[in-house]
Computed example of a mutant assay.
Amino acid sequence: MTIRVGLAAILGMVLLAGGAVAAQERGRVTDLPLPRFVSLKSSEGNVRRGPGLSHRIDWVFKRRNMPLQITAEYGHWRRVQDRDGAGGWMHYSLLSGVRTVLVEAEDVALYRSPSAESRIMARAERGVIARLGECNPDWCRIVAQGQKGWVPKAVLWGVSPDDLRQ
């Protein structure tokens, strides 16, 4: 009997520990998952050293719809980073929940369906920003400059490997 109770207690601790690891961190302000992807709403966005107007501007992001990753929240400020890990604090009004991605491979085919065996509808060059659509475990549907198609998730920045979207 004690062996069963001991095994049950150990199993319970393992499940609790696994649940704690699996639980995703949430933002203190929005209660949304952290990290998460967003996009730059405007054509320019100041990136500050800290969360507030009194902090120095380190640089300015200048690509409208550029995907960014939010890693922290403080009041109306969000700590963001780009695909290179460069970032800082931006006011939330400069960010949009519209999901976009950045094509990271040199010449990416956009397929009619989520299969490399399907017809190629268009091609995208490295650095193209596209609107993110549906995603399955390996593929995402994107729209870039009026062209639509499915691309392997691995060639995109702005989507997590475990992102599933309908």
Score class of each variant (00 low, 15 high):
35 P>E: 01
33 P>N: 01
28 R>M: 10
71 T>K: 06
121 M>S: 11
107 D>A: 12
117 E>K: 13
74 Y>F: 09
71 T>I: 14
74 Y>S: 13
59 W>V: 08
82 D>F: 14
38 V>S: 03
46 N>T: 15
124 A>L: 12
115 S>Q: 03
88 G>M: 05
89 W>I: 04
96 S>L: 07
123 R>W: 14
80 V>P: 02
123 R>K: 12
59 W>L: 11
144 A>L: 02
70 I>K: 04
46 N>I: 08
91 H>T: 15
40 L>T: 03
81 Q>G: 09
60 V>E: 13
114 P>K: 06
120 I>S: 04
48 R>C: 04
46 N>P: 12
39 S>D: 00
67 P>D: 03
67 P>V: 08
43 S>G: 08
111 Y>C: 01
115 S>H: 02
120 I>A: 04
95 L>N: 05
35 P>Q: 03
69 Q>L: 10
141 R>D: 01
104 E>N: 08
57 I>D: 01
123 R>L: 08
61 F>L: 12
123 R>E: 12
70 I>G: 03
136 N>Y: 02
118 S>K: 00
39 S>Y: 06
112 R>H: 06
147 Q>P: 09
51 P>C: 09
58 D>Q: 12
33 P>Y: 06
140 C>R: 02
87 G>K: 04
48 R>F: 09
60 V>S: 10
69 Q>G: 00
34 L>Y: 04
33 P>Q: 06
61 F>E: 03
23 A>D: 09
24 Q>A: 10
86 A>E: 14
98 V>W: 12
85 G>I: 12
98 V>Y: 13
120 I>Q: 03
31 D>F: 08
25 E>A: 10
72 A>E: 11
118 S>H: 04
86 A>G: 10
60 V>T: 15
129 I>S: 00
26 R>Q: 12
87 G>E: 05
30 T>H: 05
30 T>M: 06
111 Y>S: 02
78 R>I: 04
59 W>C: 10
144 A>V: 02
119 R>A: 13
98 V>R: 14
33 P>S: 01
121 M>Q: 11
76 H>Q: 11
106 E>D: 07
97 G>M: 10
29 V>L: 07
49 R>F: 14
121 M>H: 07
134 E>P: 03
54 S>H: 08
89 W>E: 00
38 V>M: 07
108 V>N: 00
110 L>M: 07
85 G>Y: 14
47 V>A: 02
126 R>D: 01
101 V>C: 10
105 A>W: 05
78 R>M: 13
37 F>Y: 14
63 R>W: 11
63 R>P: 09
72 A>F: 09
89 W>M: 03
129 I>A: 01
70 I>T: 00
61 F>M: 13
81 Q>N: 13
110 L>T: 00
109 A>H: 04
112 R>E: 15
116 A>I: 11
92 Y>R: 13
27 G>Y: 10
81 Q>Y: 09
32 L>D: 02
111 Y>T: 00
113 S>H: 08
43 S>W: 14
136 N>S: 12
111 Y>F: 07
46 N>A: 14
92 Y>V: 14
130 A>G: 03
124 A>E: 02
38 V>Q: 00
147 Q>H: 11
69 Q>C: 06
28 R>Y: 07
64 R>Y: 12
22 A>G: 00
144 A>K: 02
52 G>I: 07
63 R>Y: 07
36 R>P: 01
54 S>E: 13
63 R>E: 15
140 C>T: 00
29 V>C: 04
37 F>M: 06
137 P>E: 03
122 A>M: 11
93 S>E: 15
135 C>K: 02
